[in-house]
């Protein structure tokens, strides 16, 4: 398992998660997350090399629906929820870069 969590790691993770941390928060979270990850190292007490991962406890496969159109939501209802809507669309401040 990798080395201890650094302040830079936390800063990078916060950026990825679209959160802004103050300097104090950065210190606090580095310590707290570090503790939790430290605790997680107990998983290394077992040799898990040959164990397959399980992402989900659910064993059923091929759950599909038929290709049938069902009613959509009323546009006015949807746009009424929006923090800002213009011209029947959701309005956002300028986008700085293209989608990946």
């Amino acid at each position: 398992m990798s080395d201890a969590l650094s302040r830079d790691d936390v800063a990078k993770v916060a950026r990825l998660a679209r959160l802004v941390l103050s300097e104090d928060e950065l210190d606090l979270y580095t310590e707290q997350l570090g503790q939790i990850l430290e605790h997680a190292r107990d998983m290394n007490s077992l040799d898990l090399t040959d164990v397959l991962p399980t992402a989900h406890p659910f064993g059923v496969t091929n759950v599909v629906r038929e290709d049938v159109v069902t009613p959509s939501l009323d546009r006015e209802v949807v746009l009424a929820m929006a923090p800002h809507a213009v011209d029947h669309r959701f309005a956002v401040p300028r986008i700085l870069g293209e989608a990946p």
Partner: peptide
């Protein structure tokens, strides 16, 4: 986010999925 991020996935999230098994 950290547990899923590049470079740490196997050590944390991946390992946890094995413990789940």
């Amino acid at each position: 986010t950290y547990a899923l991020s590049a470079g740490y996935y196997d050590a944390y999230y991946g390992q946890a999925l094995k413990v789940r098994t």
